Computed example of a mutant assay.
Amino acid sequence: MDKLERGYVQIYTGNGKGKTTAAVGQAVRAAGNNLKVYMLQFLKTDPTGELEIAKLIGDKFQIFRFESKKGFFWNLNDEEKVILKKEIDTAYDFAAEVIKNNSCDVFILDEIMGVLSNGILTVDQVAALIDNKPENMELILTGRNVPDLIKDKADLVTEMKEIKHYMNKGVYSREGIEY
Rank of each mutant, 00 (worst) to 15 (best):
K3P: 00
L4R: 13
R6G: 00
Q10F: 14
K19D: 06
T20D: 07
A23P: 10
A31L: 09
A31F: 10
L35D: 03
Y38A: 02
Q41Y: 09
Q41F: 09
Q41E: 15
L43R: 07
K44N: 03
T45Y: 09
P47N: 07
T48P: 01
E50Q: 10
E52H: 10
E52Y: 13
I53T: 13
A54G: 05
K55F: 10
L56M: 12
G58F: 08
K60M: 14
K60V: 08
K69Y: 10
K70D: 00
D78T: 14
E80Y: 03
K81L: 13
V82E: 15
K86W: 02
A91M: 03
Y92A: 02
V98K: 11
V98C: 09
I99M: 06
N102G: 06
C104T: 05
V106S: 01
L109W: 00
D110W: 01
E111F: 00
I112C: 04
G114K: 10
S117N: 15
N118Y: 03
G119S: 07
I120A: 00
I120Y: 03
A127R: 13
I130K: 05
N132S: 14
N132H: 12
V146Q: 02
V146S: 04
V146G: 02
D148S: 11
K151P: 02
K153A: 13
K153E: 06
L156A: 00
M160P: 05
K161P: 05
I163G: 00
K164D: 10
H165S: 06
M167T: 13
V171R: 06
V171Y: 06
G176K: 02
G176S: 04
E178Y: 04
Y179S: 01
Y179W: 12
